[in-house]
Write a protein that binds this DNA or RNA. Structure first.
Lengths: 206, 206
DNA sequence: TAGATTGTTAATCGATTAACAATC
DNA sequence: TAGATTGTTAATCGATTAACAATC
């Protein structure tokens, strides 16, 4: 079964479903329905059912979905029923914030190593981590078998860093630099860029 | 002319076009084409032309687009030909990083005030700013006529903060908390959530 | 049983692409 | 002029929604 059978736009919604289910569970709920879930995230009940139907039958007529069961299934589908080691490259203010972010735990992710090319920073501590020399990037990433990188370097250096991590075996990049990275098709990239989001919103402002 | 005539998915691409044009200009280019632009950001030339055609005719047959002219037009369309004052609420590591981010300048945005509810932080400096007491949120936002808020508080407090800023007149929220905010339809919200992006990518990893 | 909600089908709606006349 | 590229139309493609039989 080829993965491309599931549209990417559907895949993109699954983490949102998972997030919402986790929240419902925290609130002490045991069951939910496509209607209930949809109301929470402004998505039609039909779309939620259609999305889930790409992967199996997880609900029961009349009663809806078991939250814990659906969480389990979505974690399986998204491959976050394990912990992915991540590399963080670039220790500016943003890199610092991400290194200290404790929200990765319990959602399938863990920072394994942090890099910078600033001699002042290399060897110093950031939280529980030691900052490594960027020149050892490939070596460490390969040795630790890391598949995910978060890039928080300047726009000018981001493509160069991307090239390096890809060469070292990274298959997914979360890119915080405001550049479109060029990578092989086998490598996933998602961008986080506040300017893009802000400008999207100001269109609707006057 | 109702704005809803332009699909939101089209609007969402405009900031990306603008970013790319700015980069081209920095690289010393004066002209570009839908084909050239498209190749840079993996979007078809036809789509770029179609998107732009919602707003006017900005190119010339045979020669394409003047970069500076198209930048000007896109800035007009996105309303970033002015500087939007922004409020930042929540001074954890992430808020700290955003407060020190210098990428807002030149793209239409400027942080005007920063809030926290931690008595240890209130009154201290962060870069050029003084951290205000969250209890004065509404007052300051109204007085400074701020229309955009960036929320970097915990998931548990985000909705409460959103309610306050909306009440104070904010019309656009960049939400870094992993919650779906409930706001009036007249208020724009965009979310930035690394977990969501990472889980989207791990679907394709094995 | 009656009410609720699923998974799925078919219909609708919307977005993307291909093609081309116009023209720089 | 010949080549290139626009803006736009129509065709294609894909995503969302409405509806409903199945069934808990």
């Amino acid at each position: 079964m080829d993965k491309k059978l599931v549209p990417d736009i559907v895949v993109a919604r699954l983490p949102l479903y998972l997030q919402t289910l986790n929240r419902l569970q925290q609130e002490g709920e045991y069951n939910t329905s496509s209607k209930d879930l949809g109301k929470r995230i402004d998505i039609s009940a039909a779309q939620i059912r259609k999305d889930l139907s790409h992967f199996g039958e997880f609900g029961k007529q009349g009663t809806g979905y078991s939250i814990s069961f659906l969480i389990e299934k979505l974690e399986d589908i998204l491959h976050v029923n394990k912990v992915w080691g991540m590399a963080l490259i670039g220790v500016g203010f943003l890199g610092h914030a991400i290194a200290n972010f404790n929200g990765f735990q319990n959602h399938g992710f863990q920072i394994k190593c942090i890099f910078d090319n600033d001699l002042e920073k290399i060897g110093t501590n950031i939280g529980e981590y030691v900052i490594y020399d960027s020149r050892n990037l490939a070596e460490v990433i390969q040795k630790e078998n890391i598949k995910i990188a978060m890039i928080t370097v300047d726009a000018e250096h981001a493509q160069n860093v991307a090239n390096q991590v890809v060469k070292a075996g990274v298959k997914a990049i979360l890119n915080y630099a405001p550049v479109k990275l060029i990578v092989p098709k086998s490598v996933q990239v998602q961008n986080i860029d506040p300017i893009i989001e802000l400008q999207h919103m100001t269109y609707y402002l006057d």
